[in-house]
Design a binder for these strands. Sequence first.
DNA 1: ACCTGAACACCGTTCAAGT
DNA 2: ACCTGAACACCGTTCAAGT
Lengths: 234, 234
Amino acid sequence: MVEHTLRRTPLSRDRVLRAAVALADEAGIESLSMRNLAQELGVVPMALYKHVANKEELLDGMIDAVVGEIDPPVPGAGWKQAVRGRILSARRVLQRHPWAPIAIESRTAATPAVLAYLDSMVGTLSAGGFSADLAHHVMHAMGSRMLGFSQELFDASRNAGRSGAAAAEPPAAPPPEFADRFPHLATIATAAFHDDASVVGTGCDDQFEFEFALDLLLDGIERLHRQGWTSHPA
Amino acid sequence: MVEHTLRRTPLSRDRVLRAAVALADEAGIESLSMRNLAQELGVVPMALYKHVANKEELLDGMIDAVVGEIDPPVPGAGWKQAVRGRILSARRVLQRHPWAPIAIESRTAATPAVLAYLDSMVGTLSAGGFSADLAHHVMHAMGSRMLGFSQELFDASRNAGRSGAAAAEPPAAPPPEFADRFPHLATIATAAFHDDASVVGTGCDDQFEFEFALDLLLDGIERLHRQGWTSHPA
DNA sequence: ACCTGAACACCGTTCAAGT
DNA sequence: ACCTGAACACCGTTCAAGT
């Protein structure tokens, strides 16, 4: 009786998914357990299984929600600007949901929204005059970058459990023996920075590095396209 | 007394790490629990904590063991062939240890062996005449591919729990409605294949796609290097 | 018929009790 | 002093018991 009036909104698949995304955003993907999520929604864990078959389906629903936030392609632009703009939009979405790459890579098959997104990207290439042959290899070569993944070896954002500066320790200055053991890394760590960034790890401009890599790929692809590249030369 | 003679080899950090790598290779990373590993070694779970502080340190040790399998750089070659050859070697290592990318990406900081490997790669670039500025951005742009990661969005090998054909279901033919919902994907799925591969998912030549993407990046990098590219043009 | 508390089979790690 | 069984605080999911 009492609970009946206290909990106004009835549970729904949409409400479960939204709460799951919010919980992962705030507390990190490792805090997203069926039990935690149920508690967040004020229900018993078993109640969730009414709306999602299991945790895998929960993750799939979360992924589709996030991928749905990516901007649609800009109509007027050429293939290169259309692909570039959309990938940069995907990157902004991932910055709001740092757990998404881990969740996406953990799935064995693509969700409907991801398939639709990739299909649209291939459509952009086709409209730009790409052969099916070249488009195929381009999709493989771009890989997870198509969804805005940085593909860095150690991506600080994806492993950040909790947001907020309190949890993250300050960028530890490299110990003095670092330069002795890894001299070449030490050299490039201090290169390419402006005068205000002298400590390793603080100076990297993530956006610059992302666009550098993206343009390296897109420029190479443009060159192949102009040359009429094919995997089975006559 | 009896156990004393039955278990001949005493536990050691090295034996723990080797058993962990073997277990992950055979049963998948999700089967690598402290409890499973202890049972595999015929000891009580607590005994492992004598040789590794916790599971994170266990994973770090496994990663270093795997990275140690990558071939050293070929001495005579130019930077491009040296980098290319080493990345292809890393890829072969990862094919023996499909769990390694997941393990490496789960770590927040690089292990000593990974740092040494990356340092060596930067050294190769420097020896090839790269500025610290360009080498820095190149390392970011290559990212996890430097360790042989395919960076595909859905990498079948990394999510394969168990090896062996028995566990893997045959490559499911796409349902007839696939081509209706994702026409562009359907088009490129059947493109670039030879006549013996007509089903989606079976026809992709992983090695070809990997080298296509790798060469796309290396060719672009070579071009920047020849042009004397710099992040702060005069 | 419906809902859910308790249970099952795990997990990493701690710690006190026993030798 | 040393080792380890039991326990703690979790996890996803099942299922039978209760209303």
